[in-house]
């Protein structure tokens, strides 16, 4: 549905996007992830035909966004960063205006606007001026505007930025609902958002694709060694010694925050994919200590993200 090949965008000396390639299949939800200034918005602006690419090409629904811009744009519902809206229009007037520009016929228009307001929960503010709406509602109006012509592709740039936690959850649900019949690209610098909504993630840093994976595969790919969190009661030095000798481990580190009187927490890194849990448990109990807690630690997406970005920067520095 969307194909990006070797896309590069330079603003004078600065290269915002540097040879990005990725594909989005029909019906897929893709998360574009990266720190601020990584080139996510620029990529989206090129896809929507707002900015021309310096080199490379992008196809949207089979149309080249540079040469067949109008045809490509007809397939896209776009919500730019910070959701620009006309503050002096009412929600209904605004949506009607956008619908007309997106080619919704006069006969269909009021029905399309009503449907967009219905699915974004903005029907009850239809006759209010946009400038009097809260940030959460403006975001909803931005989404309503994106779906008003019922496009098959949605491109949403940081759809939850600046919202409070409840609003974020609401918008996330809305996006999931909208994505059922559509292909979606969504950008974010917040991981949980992407992992919750998206099936696949493209991580961008400094204008380059660092990883492109399913959300699950990404965790698997990076976590090559097992880590076990263990909490036991007894003499700290003695427990640490037991853990080191129980199995071939790479490192045992003491961590703060025991949950019970006289208990200590440790992190054991196996240095391999070998499962250490049974051996560790047996060793601790065998040495006469109380085993209070034992758990395999999986890397959170945040950790993966930070790790990826860090290795990428190191490679560049080298």
């Amino acid at each position: 549905m969307i194909e990006v090949q070797n896309l590069t965008k330079q603003y004078g000396e600065i290269t915002a996007v540097n040879g990005i390639s990725f594909r989005v299949e029909k019906g897929e939800i893709l998360g574009l992830l990266g720190p601020n200034g990584a080139g996510k918005s620029t990529t989206m602006k090129i896809l929507t035909g707002f900015l021309p690419a310096t080199s490379g090409q992008a196809l949207v629904a089979g149309h080249n966004v540079a040469t067949e811009s109008l045809q490509a744009r007809r397939h896209i519902g776009y919500m730019p960063e910070n959701t620009p809206l006309y503050p002096n229009m009412t929600v209904r007037r605004y949506l009607t205006f956008m619908a007309s520009l997106k080619g919704v016929t006069a006969r269909e228009r009021s029905r399309a606007v009503a449907a967009a307001m219905e699915s974004t929960g903005t029907t009850h503010v239809a006759n209010r001026l946009i400038k009097h709406l809260s940030k959460g509602y403006r975001q909803r109006v931005g989404l309503a505007q994106a779906i008003v012509s019922d496009p098959d592709i949605l491109i949403l740039d940081e759809p939850t930025i600046g919202l409070d936690p409840t609003q974020i959850i609401e918008i996330r649900h809305l996006i999931s609902a909208m994505a059922q019949r559509r292909t979606v690209i969504l950008s974010s610098h917040i991981l949980p958002e992407v992992s919750e909504v998206c099936e696949r993630v493209v991580i961008i840093n400094r204008g380059q694709v660092v990883a492109s994976e399913t959300t699950k595969g990404l965790a698997r790919q990076l976590q090559k060694t097992q880590q076990v969190l263990i909490e036991a009661r007894g003499d700290r030095v003695a427990i640490e010694k037991v853990l080191r000798e129980a199995a071939p481990v790479r490192a045992v580190t003491f961590e703060r925050g025991g949950t019970a009187e006289g208990s200590h927490r440790f992190r054991v890194d196996s240095g391999s994919e070998h499962d250490l849990r049974a051996e560790l448990a047996r060793a601790v109990v065998g040495a006469g200590h109380d085993l209070l807690h034992l758990e395999e630690h999986t890397l959170s997406l945040e950790e993966i993200f930070v790790q990826l970005i860090r290795t990428e920067s190191k490679r560049e520095a080298a």
Binding site: G49, F50, R73, R74, I76, Y78, P80, P84, L101, K102
Partner: peptide, 8 residues
């Protein structure tokens, strides 16, 4: 940006 990304 919205205006120019509409099919107009």
């Amino acid at each position: 940006e919205l205006l120019l990304t509409c099919p107009v």
